[in-house]
């Protein structure tokens, strides 16, 4: 889990270390936009904007979809708080299960010591 979070956070922080990219995220938070819309708004070439969007996309902060000849950008699937909360709930479920499983296993171990001889016959 730590590795996963670290890798994810590294990508997120790298993506967010650039003012233009932060601006793009802010912009997309308000409304989706095409790459050329964004390039125009941020006074950049199309190629330059594509690179920024690519970095954001790899970090999961933005997702893009090509419809016809236009690539539309939206806020991505990655929402750190949501992910952490999800993992937390998931862990709680399994911890609870495994605590019960511990009891079952202990019981089997005790029984095994008693029944072991019978089974081997």
């Amino acid at each position: 889990m730590v590795q996963y979070l670290d890798a994810g956070l590294d990508a997120s922080f790298a993506a967010l270390s650039d003012a233009t990219r932060r601006g793009v995220l802010e912009q997309l938070g308000r409304a989706e936009a095409s790459i050329s819309d964004l390039a125009e708004k941020f006074n950049m070439t199309l190629t330059g904007m594509k690179k920024h969007v690519g970095v954001l996309e790899r970090a999961g902060l933005v997702r893009t979809e090509k419809v016809g000849r236009v690539r539309t950008c939206k806020i991505g699937p990655r929402r750190l708080e949501e992910e952490m909360a999800w993992l937390d709930r998931y862990r709680q479920l399994w911890e609870a299960r495994f605590d019960e499983l511990d009891k079952v296993v202990e019981e089997l171990k005790r029984k095994g010591q008693v029944d072991g001889r019978k089974k081997r016959e």
């Binding site: 998931y90 911890e95 495994f98």
Partner: peptide
């Protein structure tokens, strides 16, 4: 024992735990 949870990818989760048996 400690339960660890890892989200391997967008589609996969992995839970690990040691049992004393």
């Amino acid at each position: 024992n400690r339960t660890t949870v890892e989200r391997k990818s967008e589609r996969e989760t992995v839970v690990t735990r040691t049992f004393n048996a």
